[in-house]
């Protein structure tokens, strides 16, 4: 139950004074509270846990991490070719 799930914000609105949103989890949509991500915009990716957005997910950071790891693959491949 402790697992946060990433989703995309597709709608933002207010219910009883709380900032809420519709979140798309790859086809399935659910409502979540966006009070803790006041900067959230439609189209942002966010980590949802027990009906609350805990944080926005940085696509840039994700890409950078993967790029770094991909470079290692390339270096290894080069080394294999030289061998």
């Amino acid at each position: 139950m402790c697992l946060g799930v990433p989703g995309k914000i597709i709608e933002i609105y207010e219910v009883s004074g709380l900032k809420m949103g519709k979140i798309d989890f790859g086809g399935v949509t659910r409502e979540a509270c966006l009070e803790y991500v006041p900067e959230a915009q439609i189209g942002d990716y966010t980590l949802i846990h027990v009906g609350f957005a805990l944080n926005l997910i940085s696509e840039e950071e994700a890409k950078e991490t993967l790029q770094l790891l991909n470079q290692i693959v390339e270096i290894n491949e080069e080394m294999v070719q030289k061998d």
Partner: peptide, 17 residues
Amino acid sequence: MDKTLLSGFRDADLIQT
């Protein structure tokens, strides 16, 4: 996004490396 944010972190080649 899916590619980067999800399946990217399940990439078998990257894991093996």
